[in-house]
């Protein structure tokens, strides 16, 4: 669905953010995109959506060049930005004005999502709280039935029950034809949701692996003592949270936060394991 080849991107007068980036993303997956502040998570999403233009390299999204911003592609992309402002109109009018651009828009689905998120449908959009706006735009975006769903920090501003609803809704939104990319700092919010982890570090994709592959190769454990097989560890109340090579094919639960920190500190070791 998405093919990125030799992508070089940088903002004006600043060093390149991505150097010769290559990546392929397919339908039927929920990708979690992680990286430090300023690593370029939002920028990568914007490149994919055609919101910014790369210096060189090619981007192919569903057979289109996203920078052309062709309507045929735009109607297949649902982009939920981190910061956004909605017009001062009622939900009904927003639907009347914007939904017809999406030929597959699911009005019934939208209504049920709005109900699930507990949003009153007789409100002006600009009078909603930030969290409500976020839930509204997520509900609208998913109802467009777009094949590519891109979300930048979607859980920011959501309260705890809404985060649970969000996970549930996103899990049900994934179909064989859809590709979902979620960028977030709130790694716990994506627990049990994403099936592939993408980590950005030092101008490149430092890690792209499925949760299954990661847990096959690595073992996430809480231990009291460390041995030589440890790749990375952090002290915790009862000992250490550690990542080991999974030489004995043990089952363990992926700890994205720990993995991310490991990537920052033990990049070489992890690269050797995954390449």
């Amino acid at each position: 669905m998405i093919i990125i080849e030799n992508l070089n991107f940088g903002y004006n007068k600043r060093p390149l953010l991505f150097r010769d980036m290559n990546m392929q993303l397919s339908c039927g997956h929920i990708y979690g995109l992680f990286g430090e502040n300023g690593a370029g998570k939002s920028t990568l999403l914007k490149n994919i959506a055609g919101l910014v233009y790369a210096q060189s390299g090619t981007l192919n999204v569903m057979g289109f060049d996203p920078k052309q911003r062709q309507p045929a592609l735009l109607q297949e992309i649902c982009f939920i930005p981190e910061e956004f402002e909605l017009p001062s109109i009622y939900i009904d009018n927003y639907l009347k004005g914007t939904a017809p651009f999406y030929p597959k828009f699911d009005y019934e689905g939208f209504k049920s999502l709005i109900d699930e998120f507990n949003i009153q449908s007789d409100q002006r959009l600009n009078e909603m709280s930030y969290g409500q706006k976020k839930k509204f735009i997520i509900a609208f975006g998913l109802s467009t039935q777009a094949r590519l769903v891109i979300m930048d920090e979607p859980t920011n501003g959501l309260d705890i029950p809404s985060k649970t609803q969000f996970r549930k809704i996103m899990a049900s939104a994934l179909t064989e034809e859809r590709c979902i990319i979620i960028s977030t700092h709130q790694v716990r919010d994506l627990d049990n949701l994403i099936d592939t982890v993408i980590m950005l570090n030092e101008n490149r994709i430092a890690l792209k692996a499925s949760v299954e592959e990661i847990t096959q190769k690595l073992c996430f454990k809480r231990v009291k003592e460390l041995d030589d097989t440890v790749i990375y560890s952090e002290t915790s109340i009862s000992g250490y949270q550690a990542i080991f090579r999974n030489l004995n094919q043990q089952d363990s639960k992926l700890d994205i936060e720990l993995l991310f920190n490991a990537l920052l500190h033990e990049s070489k070791k992890l690269t050797q394991i995954f390449n």
């Binding site: 919101l51 309507p71 735009l74 109607q75 992309i77 930005p81």
Partner: peptide, 18 residues
């Protein structure tokens, strides 16, 4: 000029000419 509104507008499925 406002980033918060810009993305929503640019992503509306219509051509730049329209």
């Amino acid at each position: 000029g406002q980033k918060s509104k810009l993305i929503v507008d640019l992503m509306v499925p219509a051509s730049t000419l329209e």
